[in-house]
């Protein structure tokens, strides 16, 4: 059975006929060609697939796309404005908050959500805030520095 869904992704409305079992992450990657959102573990553990649904960080491998019907979704592709990095992207660049880069889209989206809830987190709040997003390179020290730099940038929207 096919379902008609309309999802607003990075400010653009998309309408598509999909199967109920299509996961949100596969809708983004395979239907909309937005491959910035990664699939890591596919078991809601690693957080590489983190996107914002109505402003809240969720693991898009554990949400069916039909559940996002009518929702507002932001992926890593939606952060930069007018060719300029979002302050969290800039901070990850400046502090080299990545090694292989695979977790980076999820880490950045998690950070955007974390800083919206808590604009000036302590180091321990940052570490517990990002604990649902795993960096298998174990590059956490620079990731934490990047989150601190983004918080201190005074540029967070």
């Amino acid at each position: 059975m096919s379902y008609l869904v309309t999802v607003r992704v990075n400010g653009v409305e998309h309408t598509a006929h999909i199967e109920a079992r299509l996961l949100l992450v596969n809708f983004l990657r395979d239907v909309l060609d937005l491959t910035g959102t990664h699939v890591g573990c596919d078991t809601s553990s690693c957080g590489a697939c983190t996107v914002l649904v109505n402003g809240q960080a969720v693991k898009s491998c554990t949400v069916f796309a039909v559940q996002a019907n009518g929702a507002d979704v932001t992926t890593v592709e939606g952060l930069a404005k007018d060719g300029k990095f979002h302050p969290v992207q800039q901070a990850f660049w400046d502090e080299h908050g990545l090694q292989c880069g695979f977790c980076t889209p999820g880490m950045i989206m998690t950070t955007v959500a974390l800083l919206k809830k808590n604009p000036s987190p302590t180091e321990s709040e940052i570490r517990s805030g990002i604990r649902g997003t795993l960096c298998r390179c174990t590059g956490y020290n620079n990731i934490v520095k990047a989150v601190q730099a983004a918080a201190a940038s005074g540029r967070m929207p």
Partner: peptide, 9 residues
């Protein structure tokens, strides 16, 4: 419980 993303759902 779990993490920020899971607690949102």
């Amino acid at each position: 419980i779990a993490d920020l993303q899971v607690r949102n759902r």
